[in-house]
Design a protein around this nucleic acid. Structure first.
Lengths: 396, 396
DNA sequence: CTACTTTTTCCACTCTCAGGACAAAGGCGG
DNA sequence: CCGCCTTTGTCCTGAGAGTGGAAAAAGTAG
């Protein structure tokens, strides 16, 4: 099939496309209720969108008491690719124009192998999805990488955990390979976008999205838009000092949040506890697998292991203290906790909540929900699809 | 003179008014270069503005090689009132439409005397300024209060240091008394606006403005706009924990930044040092005045007093640590330090810089200026004038 | 089948706005 | 002082956007 290349010609068309994306198929009449346009104008714009094949007519809608309206929907052949590159694994998903996931693959992979190797794998995964018949090609792709990005160019800058990627033209390279427009962003920002689009943050304009995985980062949404900071490193909270004169961190400082709590830190703490025989539960798991990860701690905690619970609680307290500061500063309407470590569940959440509600002023916490992300591992790829669709569904 | 009541009728007119406000008098031709409008359209809009008397023709501009253009300027009779209510003093200033300060009064006053008493004084000060012939009335007023504000309504909410003000309809009351539109905001946000308009932050889209006075607050500017948070308490960094298990704070927690460093904390520390005879310099000043304030510490430090310097340095370190965290999180393009305590000058600034540059990642600090505010005590009133002018110079 | 709704199309009319033509005003070299 | 140039301001026309009424089309309810 021939790929769509058209873009909305004006703000009205862009508005309509986003309504169809977020609200699904819609009758012309319903669209008219949602935008402030005269019937004639609306008809003209819809006709033009039909001409470009960005949207298609799709049968008749149910009657609202009179003549039935024609349904309009985004072209069902449109396909977006969402890629979420984590520190230790890659997620690739295909969505339709309504950003519903049609297919999703996850594979372990070390981001430190460098952009060339990772790209090869991402393209292979995309090809595999295509081979299932879900897509014949892609109309756009969004990709998240675990580090700061110069957003307009789509180039990682000085990413600590993926050294080989510094300055690599991710956007351009992927665009070449896939033959479609590409947008690149930090993985945490994409998680925030995902939760905003289809998760817990649908109705909130200003919120924080804390992702605790191998590292810790925070997506910042201001007025419904992701805030990226001057150099694209906003939300990099893993290296905020959580413990004065605490543990040494890879960044050269001491006491960074990430050094005390994150997937990596937790695995190390657990291993240590197992070796010192503080926790029989963890010790058996270490013997069984050879290594320990956050998943093991979660399992041990679920089994009631006191040491594991302590580790989670302490980490949650530290994280909560940092978040409390951010809440005082940013006064968000919602805090979302996500990332791999959220398997730790309510023990973690309870510790974070305690610290935030205690450490911030009542005016800021009074009506502040602190919740786990709703989308789990799909938040990133949905956010990626959302990123590129936002780009494509805006006036050219 | 009859007050202006007109408002720009559309976005073009608003744009022109702001250009004239920020760029001063301008020829019609120069205006044409700055906005993307046809000559005819521009002429029409300018004519309409002339009709409303918001702008006036003002002689001929210098030739640019051909026919000389007519100059256009904002009506020189327009007057804005800027009010900055601090914890312990009030600033009132009159500006023209270009936000140049024509007259400025400062008076000590305790905000805890409540809104009625403070209003009386503010109105008296405004009357005094009017009596000098600077203004015959006001076309708009901006007012800053030292606490969180529900911005759309202009009502303080749960302000810790001004209990009597909770829920008092500042905007409506002042608007009644002055007979002109009024906007209310947090004093820190107004300082940020002031520095953005006429100070060090003129060219920066995203920055932080830390005000260290009786308390500590932080103005947040995102994309050129003040960010106020969900409940209007964004930037309330005084109660971020700076010292684990530190001093008890009025808010009920321990170790708040404000409890360890602020005008109030500094005065108490200085008094204690003087009483314990640790600092002869401070001791003599205490005997002379009966009390000590930040000013005394600044003077003692300037005279080389080691204790005073230590107090400043330690406070700067604490503040710097907190700011370092905020810089990691927010990745601003500039940090401005202002407020009453900035009399402590470079000792303070050096301490803050050290902590920030050491405690945040290079990508965030690489090109991050940390500077003192340029406007000193006038930042607040200029920001207040800017606030109301932004409101009035926007489409009705 | 009739009366009433809702949706859609068609059309005439208004309004905005860009850009060309031209007049007005000034600079500059001779 | 005089032509010739540039810049500025004004007027006018034509293209396009957009509105809202009228009527046709397609249903529903009784």
């Amino acid at each position: 099939m021939r790929r769509m290349t058209a873009r909305p010609a004006n703000a009205h068309q862009a508005r309509l496309l986003r309504l169809l994306r977020d609200g699904g198929p819609n009758s012309r009449a319903q669209l008219g209720d949602q935008v402030d346009l005269s019937r004639s104008k609306l008809a003209v714009e819809v006709d033009r969108l039909l001409e470009t094949e960005l949207v298609v007519a799709d049968g008749l809608a149910a009657s609202r008491g009179g003549r039935r309206s024609h349904n309009i929907r985004l072209n069902p052949h449109l396909r977006f690719l969402g890629v979420d590159i984590g520190a230790t694994s890659v997620d690739v998903a295909v969505t339709n124009a309504e950003l519903e996931i049609l297919g999703h693959i996850n594979q372990p992979m070390d981001v430190r192998e460098g952009p060339v190797a990772v790209f090869e794998q991402v393209l292979a995964m995309a090809a595999k999805l295509r081979a299932t018949g879900l897509a014949e090609g892609f109309d756009g792709a969004g990709i998240g990488v675990p580090g700061p990005v110069r957003f307009p160019e789509g180039i990682p800058v000085a990413p600590p955990i993926m050294p080989g990627w510094d300055g690599f033209p991710v956007r351009e390279a992927l665009s070449q390979e896939l033959g479609c427009p590409v947008m690149v962003d930090n993985d945490v920002n994409l998680m925030a976008l995902g939760e905003q689009h289809a998760g817990v943050a649908r109705t909130v304009a200003d919120f924080l999205c804390v992702k605790i995985g191998t590292g810790i980062g925070c997506g910042i949404v201001v007025g419904g838009e992701v805030y990226r900071g001057t150099t694209g490193s906003a939300g990099d909270i893993g290296h905020i000092q959580a413990v004065p004169d605490g543990r040494p961190c890879a960044c050269g400082n001491r006491g960074c949040l990430e050094a005390h709590f994150s997937g990596a830190a937790l695995a190390r703490d657990a291993t240590e506890a197992a070796e010192q025989r503080l926790s029989p539960e963890l010790a058996t798991r270490l013997e069984a697998n050879g290594t320990l990860s956050a998943v093991d701690v979660a399992a041990a905690a679920a089994a009631g292991d006191a040491t594991a619970l302590d580790l989670i609680r302490e980490g949650g307290n530290r994280t909560g203290q940092v978040i409390a500061g951010l809440v005082s500063f940013f006064n968000p309407g919602l805090v979302v906790i996500g990332g791999g470590v959220t398997g730790l569940g309510h023990t973690l959440l309870a510790a974070i909540r305690t610290q935030v509600y205690r450490g911030s002023l009542p005016l800021a916490t009074g009506n502040l929900p602190i919740v786990l992300g709703e989308l789990g591992p799909t938040a990133g790829v949905i956010g990626a699809a959302r990123l590129i669709s936002d780009h494509l569904f805006s006036p050219a």
